[in-house]
Amino acid sequence: MARLPSRTTQQESRPALPVALPVSLLAALQPRKSRYRSAFLVLAILLSISTYLLVRPSWSLSLHKDTPAVDQLAVALESARNSRLSGTTRKHKKIFNSGEQVRLDPSQELAAISSFLASLPQNIIPLSVDPSVTIDPQLVLDFDTRSVRAMEEVRHIVADVWLRNPVFLYSKLYSPASREIKAMLGKMNLRPTPTIMDVDIRDDAEVLEPIIRRLTSSSELPVLLVGGKPAGSIEEIRLLDRSGELRKMVAASGAVIDGSKKKKHRH
């Protein structure tokens, strides 16, 4: 009786499949994935061509002929970005450097410094400032001091600071003359209340005091400003107070005498 070939023998007699199937066969087995890949490839090619046509004019003529296409595309994109940034910078400079630095006269400088110091308690004049010369406007003004509207802004600052601070006293905390002027002002019960700055206890005292003396032609502090104008020496202020002229000056500056009392009575 003839013997049947074993299973092992039948398997060995079959031809073995190749380890790696051809790409076309894989595509045939997975037609849907193949279509997706083809569509993605076409889209990528179209995107590359569009980018090339858009940025080609900005490419540098010095690109070597054998530079890889990917490198050329990266260089082109970088060139286009730099070109846009350069244009923005030029526009920015045109807007903010459209004129010369604004120049302040003594009254404007006094107003600018007073506004700067009164706006925030932490504002100080840098110790590097030379008090004998006009201060750099950029240190005390919060706008572009080279713009065509800089002088208009300065005039606004001058009007605003004395409107908000009609009575402004640069004093010394440990000064009998300063205490005397503070007492005079206290009796008037002013509204708004006087702005009092004790220069001698400030961190910028060594530069601020000589600046105030230079701008007000005063030999020493205290300096009383009424409507932005120095009221004079302590002897002159005493005479003004005795004659009643000081009250008239204060009222003319916009401060309301006995205004704080009236406000309290309303409550």
Rank of each mutant, 00 (worst) to 15 (best):
S34I: 00
Q30H: 06
A39L: 15
T51W: 07
R56N: 14
S79L: 15
T89R: 06
S24D: 08
L47A: 15
L21T: 05
L43W: 02
A28F: 09
A74V: 14
L61R: 06
L25A: 09
L43H: 04
K91S: 12
K65V: 15
A74M: 14
Y52M: 13
E78L: 09
R90L: 13
P68C: 00
V70Q: 02
K91T: 02
L41N: 11
A44L: 09
L61Y: 02
A28Q: 09
E78F: 00
V75D: 10
S86R: 12
F96Q: 10
I45F: 03
R84P: 04
Y36N: 01
D71L: 13
V23Y: 00
F40Q: 06
T89F: 01
P68H: 03
L61N: 11
S58I: 06
A76S: 15
P31V: 04
F96Y: 10
A69F: 04
Q72F: 01
S83T: 12
V55L: 14
Q72V: 15
S86K: 12
S83I: 13
V42Y: 01
S50Y: 05
S98G: 08
S50N: 00
T89Y: 01
A76Q: 07
S58K: 00
S50K: 03
R84D: 12
Y36K: 03
H92F: 13
A80M: 02
L54P: 06
K93N: 12
P22N: 07
S48Q: 11
H64E: 13
L41K: 05
S34M: 06
F40D: 05
H92P: 02
R37S: 12
P31N: 01
L85Y: 03
I45A: 03
S38D: 03
I49G: 00
R37A: 11
A27W: 01
K91H: 01
S48R: 07
F96T: 05
F96D: 02
G87M: 13
A80K: 04
T51M: 05
G87I: 14
T51Q: 09
L63K: 04
R56P: 01
K94E: 11
I49T: 00
R32A: 14
S48T: 13
S50V: 10
T89L: 14
S83A: 12
S38L: 11
T89E: 09
L29Y: 00
S24Q: 11
L25E: 13
Q30W: 03
L53E: 10
T51R: 03
A20Q: 08
P31R: 07
L25F: 06
L54K: 14
K93P: 07
V19W: 01
I45Y: 04
S58N: 12
Q72S: 03
S38K: 01
S58G: 05
S58E: 08
Q72K: 15
S34E: 07
T89H: 06
N97H: 02
A28G: 03
I95P: 08
N82Q: 11
L25P: 08
S34C: 00
R56F: 06
S86V: 03
V70D: 00
P31I: 09
I95D: 10
F96S: 01
F40R: 06
L63P: 12
V70A: 05
R35G: 04
A80F: 02
R90W: 02
Y52R: 09
L77W: 01
P68A: 06
P31W: 08
V19I: 02
K91Q: 09
A74K: 09
V75C: 07
F40H: 08
